[in-house]
Structures are given as structure tokens and as C-alpha cells.
Amino acid sequence: MKINDLTQKAISLLKELIETQSFSSEEEQTAQLIEQWFTSHHIPFQRTKNNVWTTNQHFDKNKPTLLLNSHHDTVKPNSAYTNDPFKAIVEDGKLYGLGSNDAGGCLVSLIATFTYFYTFKDLKYNLVIVASAEEESSGANGLNSMLPIIPPIDVAIVGEPTLMNLTIAEKGLVVFDAVVEGTPSHAAHPNTDNAIYNTIEVLKWFQEFQFEKTSQALGDVKMTVTQIKAGSQHNVVPAHVDLVIDVRVNDAYSNEEIAQILQEKSPCTKITPRSLRLNSSAISPEHDLVKAGLAIGRSTYGSPTLSDQAVLSCQSLKLGPGDSTRSHSANEFIYLSEIEEGIELYIKLLNKCILENQ
């Protein structure tokens, strides 16, 4: 199939996806639209809950496998929208609508790219595509649930908006719940162990603490106190203050190491990670995918934002059309030209990496 034809069909699919509600864990109808794409292109597929996946026609278990992945769930639209978030509107070369940029443009571009290569013989890599659910909520029924089901993966391209530049590393995430304790009392009486006052020094510690190891691609670990809660009425000094700490982890640390450091060093009474599974991600600058991307004029960078890369144990590259700064914004949009370029560049990249004659 010609690339131009695939591109126009991909844009039509994206318009349908925009106009079909698909909040995390509510992606049944968008999964059906993706099924219809594969059916119309005579590609057998499988569906596990709201994840739709398939492999290339000439899959060979003796070859390494490249995963193509992006998600079809969305966040809920924010109150600042002036457009209908569920209406695909094209104006001045922009396609507006919820999920257009994050990550519908990436998803349909990868689906079109997979379809282009589906019937190719003698590829260096097998191809597996997963249109996944529950990415926005890091849910239990997303890409992580598919890893025991799909063939073993050696390397992955995760479609997220990167302006088609190569994200060769991505920070992981650990969220901590922390407690600062004190002595509860009536507000009218002296109290030298007020939990709220005790929190002042604790907050200062979090503000000033620096993890020792930095990363060439991702810089320093970034730790931020994002929530604080204490007290129930005006005349009672509370027994404790609850904090939430957001830690963005570079590839110099494992999530387990971060948890150990904070549990040993932080001045909190208690500090507990909610989960340690959202790890940092990276791919070697010497990997063929990175070399191919550089050869077609793309640049590399490290990303502070989280994606489904976090659930993969293999090397992975985040790459896709669109701009991350538009994600979750009001009147979200993607340029049609970005989708056209995205499909063209995905195909150029894979031409350099997976064709036997390259």
C-alpha cells in the first residue's frame, strides 16, 4: 500500500478515535475502531481486554522482536476547553480534539507503519504492535498486563509526542507517602512538639536534599513535595502531618535505591513508596534504532515525563509526532503535517534497521 494512502487512512482513524470517548479503563469503543482497521487491511489480530495486538505476517521466533506501542486511552478534558473535546475539528492545518496529540497521532502513525511492513519477508526483526489501554492511569490492564501474553520483546518504540526526536532516556517515578509526627494538644496550651511546626524543617530538608548521582541524558533526580494535609479543627494541634512526595528518578538509580535512601535519611517519622514498578528507561546511543534516527536527521534527548516505557525491562526508544507540551492542555491539537512526517520518518527509520538488504 502507498504511504500517502496509509497516511490519509490513519488521519481518518484518528478523527474517529477523537470522537469516541476512551477515558482510562473505558476504551472498549476505541478498541473496536482499531480492530476495524486491522480487519479492513486483512491483518489477523488479538484483543486482551482493551488492548489490541498482532504480529507481522512472517513472524519468526528465531529472530529478535521489536515492539511498536502507543495507547488509545485519554485523560478527562479539563474545564478550560472552548472546543468540543470529542469533536475532530480541522483548522489551519491543525486537528483538534481530546487525545489528538497524546497519543492518538502517535498511535495511528505506528499502526500505519506496522501495516506498511506487515507483509514484508526476511526482516531482521519481528514486529509486534500493541495498541494499549490504561496508560494515562498506569492501570493494571495496560501494556504491563500484555508482556506475559505477547512474544518476548528485545527492543521497543513507544509512541509518545516527541516532535519525532529520539528520547533515549526517560525518568522513572516513585510517589511516597510520608508522616511527620508531633504531640497532639489543645491549641490554647503550650506545645513544643507541634507536628505542623515540625514539618517546617522536614519541608526544608526535601527542598535542599540532593541525590549524588546525575545522568548525562536525564540530569539529576527531581524530588518535589506535592501534597500536605493536617488538622481537623481550629483548636486542636494534630498528632501528625501527611505529605506526598513525587520523585522523578534518573537512570543512575533504581527505584529501590531511591526508596532505601529516603527511608534511611529523610527526617520523616515514616516514608513509604506507593509502588516501585515505574522505572527509568534508556536505550544505548549505539543501538541501531538510535543510529538510524540520527542518520535521518533527528536529535536525541532525555525526557522528564513518564510513559509505558516504565513497564518495559528491555531497551526502549520514545518517539512520535506531536509536542509533549500540548498534552493534557485545553483545545489539544496535532498538526496534520506532523502525522504525515511521523509516518514517513517511522518508515525511514525501520527501513534502515529491519530490512535485510540495508
Rank of each mutant, 00 (worst) to 15 (best):
G322A: 11
A188E: 08
G320W: 02
F38P: 01
Y301R: 10
L336V: 11
L166Q: 03
S185M: 11
H42D: 11
P44S: 10
H71A: 11
V155E: 01
V158C: 05
L14I: 08
F23A: 12
K61A: 15
I18Q: 00
A10E: 02
I89D: 07
P44A: 13
L349E: 00
A31R: 02
I271G: 02
M223G: 01
N191W: 12
E201I: 11
Y96H: 05
E264S: 15
T214Y: 04
K348M: 11
E208W: 11
K94S: 11
L127I: 10
A259S: 15
T30E: 04
G342P: 02
I196W: 05
N51H: 09
C268Y: 01
T162N: 03
G231W: 03
S337I: 05
N357W: 06
A112C: 07
I129M: 07
A103H: 01
Q21V: 13
L6H: 01
Q46G: 07
Q210N: 12
F114D: 02
L262I: 04
D84S: 08
D73N: 09
S24M: 10
K61C: 10
E181I: 08
A103V: 11
V311R: 01
E28F: 12
I354T: 08
T305A: 15
E256H: 15
K270T: 14
L345M: 12
A88I: 03
T167W: 02
E256D: 14
L98D: 00
S337Q: 14
A112K: 02
P267E: 05
Q29S: 09
S100M: 06
L349F: 05
P151L: 13
S100R: 06
S100F: 13
S266Y: 00
P285D: 08
K229F: 08
N62Q: 15
